[in-house]
Amino acid sequence: MNWITNYVRPKINSIFSRREMPEHLWTKCDECGTMLFHRELSENLNVCTNCGHHMPISPRDRFRTLFDAGVFTEVSVPDPVEDPLKFRDQKRYPDRLRAAQKKSGEKEAMLVAEGEIGRTPVVVAGQDFSFMGGSMSMYVGNAILAGAERAVETKRPFILFSAAGGARMQEGILGLMQMPRTTIAVQMIKEAGLPYIVVLTHPTTGGVTASYAMLGDVQIAEPNALIGFAGARVIEQTIREQLPEGFQRAEYLLDHGMLDRVTPRGEIRDELITIVRMLMKEPPAIKGDLPAPEPMLEPVAEPAAEESPAEPAQDEDEPK
């Protein structure tokens, strides 16, 4: 305790971190430009309180608000072979993976958990777009399979939140082969007579839409989510014409009969409870926030990745 540690150091720290402070506390809505206080924004599930624009939300944050009292248990996912093709573009693939892990604090692009929503036991998988564009890797394939197996084993519905640019290029053909692999996972759930509900979030494209993300018994999407197979730029180059307003957005897909529902993030939990309980022939549920279920499950508070102190990443990311 002295003048240097109590006065000078805080002073110096505040000088260096002063410029970053507002950015941590305030987020600018990329749609309407409103500055949103971070606590208010996260309480609103990263949906702009002014214009309703849905900003990205990590699977972990989503799970905290989805499961009763935020309590869930992670389903463990077997590790695949790392860097199976020894892929190298401008960077080595393992380096890109490390950077993504450091940045997101997660091990990979998909988190699988089990728990209860509205007292209804479910298995939920969430894809993380901030992790290498959410791309479908062998790990993602393993995660969906692990989730499906767990759902079948415990006779629970399987709910999947998708967000991805497609298959992971750095795993080449093995990334692509996750299309049939995850389709098998979906078949396992269906054969067991269990519901498989997909919630498409912004953006879901490529090989992911062309496999598990379009095979749900019920297909829900968040408002304005970009959903499609090919990228709009590629399509414009191919057909040499301007695409219509709202093309490949959730509402556009709903209009074209490709989705069951478009539902704002804040209402998705209740909607899932309603649908899943009807499909499982359970009586109507008590809506709203519920205390943690009995018996108490192990609360999961820490991120899974081992070598990931939450620290802003220096490397630029390359969402596909």
């Binding site: 049939p180 078949q187 839409t209 062309a210 598990y212 990228g231 057909i239 695409l243 556009y252 074209h256």
Partner: peptide, 25 residues
Amino acid sequence: AYPGKGAEERGQSEAIARSTEKCLS
């Protein structure tokens, strides 16, 4: 698969997913 406006509107990805599913079943 063809990257076109109509193809997207008529569910290119869903059609591919169902075809893969059919192959498997």
